[in-house]
């Protein structure tokens, strides 16, 4: 089995800026962005990195795409060391970042894609064919002649995606490729990623995302990463299966800002997370219980805390719950 990406005890730390250093003088003046990361991504796989803000996802992608050096450890892309032979790695990869503003506002969509294809030495004819195909699949033909400075956010992100795929890399890194896109555009992008991958068994996708549903739908396997550490790495199905013995409850109460810490200590509660939605005056609670009977303790504690239950339901485990079970909190901005 060939690995598209392999990392061995990969570490990356950042020094804190001076101002921040002064604030917490006694604390360590470093941020650990990646800690002993060991991953093996198979060729042909659609692999996901799931984690909250600051987990280290982008850091990992930057190391793999030769934009950043690891502090220690080794990373191989298509079997090639990213530190020792970056030029060789670059021939095999490309990267798309959500919200990036690549290109020059004065060029139109087609010209922009052509320009980036030339950085990969693609013959003009082939490049133009590929661009035509991408424009068609992503439903961008009518914007082919639009200057990119005039594109809307969604169109712009489609352009970014096309830019990444225009050179048909062997391995592509997608860092939140659907960030801020509406449902339809995200769906188009996801669909394209899947078809592209299926076209050639040697292709590999490494995707980071905040969106659980996206990870669930797309990924063959995924790694949950938090504070620089890989907590678990498996297929979405297996991850969810790991929770089937537990009882998962979603409870909605009126907006309650106090007393949340106590809920984690209720007997029978394995993990607990909450999210305030002040604009609708609600707080959402997620409980992972050792077994169903513990729910009575939970509802008691909620009433004791003075909160009123609006709804309560037992749910099948989702990736979100896997995340709560592992990290002990929910993924924010989850919608």
């Amino acid at each position: 089995m060939n690995y598209a990406v392999e990392t061995f005890d990969l570490n990356r730390t950042f020094k804190l800026k001076k101002e921040k250093k002064e604030k917490n003088k006694n604390e360590n003046s470093k941020v650990i962005a990646l800690e002993n990361v060991n991953l093996k991504i198979h060729e042909g796989e659609l692999f996901g990195l799931l984690g909250p803000n600051g987990a280290g996802k982008t850091t990992l992608i930057k190391i793999l795409s030769t934009l950043l050096l690891p502090t220690s450890g080794t990373a191989l892309v298509d079997g090639i060391d990213v530190v020792k032979y970056p030029e060789e790695v670059r021939k095999r990869i490309n990267m798309v970042t959500g919200g990036e503003h690549c290109g020059y506002g004065i060029l139109n969509v087609r010209e922009t894609l052509w320009m980036f294809s030339q950085l990969y030495g693609i013959p003009n004819k082939k490049a133009n064919e590929k661009i035509g195909e991408l424009l068609k699949i992503l439903d961008m033909e009518k914007f082919a002649k639009t200057k990119i400075g005039k594109l809307s956010t969604g169109m712009r992100q489609k352009l970014n995606v096309m830019r990444g795929f225009v050179c048909d890399p062997k391995i592509i890194f997608l860092d939140e490729p659907t960030l801020g896109l509406d449902v339809q555009v995200s769906r188009d992008v996801r669909k394209y990623v899947k078809t592209w991958l299926a076209e050639d068994p040697e292709r590999t996708v490494l995707l980071t995302t905040h969106y659980m549903a996206e990870a669930d739908e797309l990924c063959d396997r995924l790694a949950v990463i938090d504070q620089g550490k890989v907590l678990v790495c498996d297929s979405p199905q297996n991850l969810k299966k790991s929770l089937t013995k537990d009882a998962i409850f979603h409870i909605e109460v009126n907006l309650t800002l106090n007393g949340m810490e106590k809920f984690g200590e209720i007997p029978g509660v394995k993990k607990f997370a909450y999210e305030h939605k002040s604009h609708i005056g609600r707080t959402f609670l997620k409980f992972i219980l050792e077994d169903e009977s513990a729910i009575s303790h939970v509802t008691e504690s909620i009433s004791d805390n003075g909160s009123k239950i609006v709804s309560l339901s037992k749910v099948e485990p989702s990736l979100e719950d896997v995340f709560v079970a592992l990290v002990g909190r929910g993924l924010q901005d989850e919608n």
Binding site: L67, M95, T97, E100, H101, C102, G103, L119, R163
Partner: peptide, 13 residues
């Protein structure tokens, strides 16, 4: 600022 630098840097040129 625009992020083009990143893209030039990861290109095999």
């Amino acid at each position: 600022e625009m992020g083009n630098l990143d893209l030039y840097m990861i290109a095999p040129i």
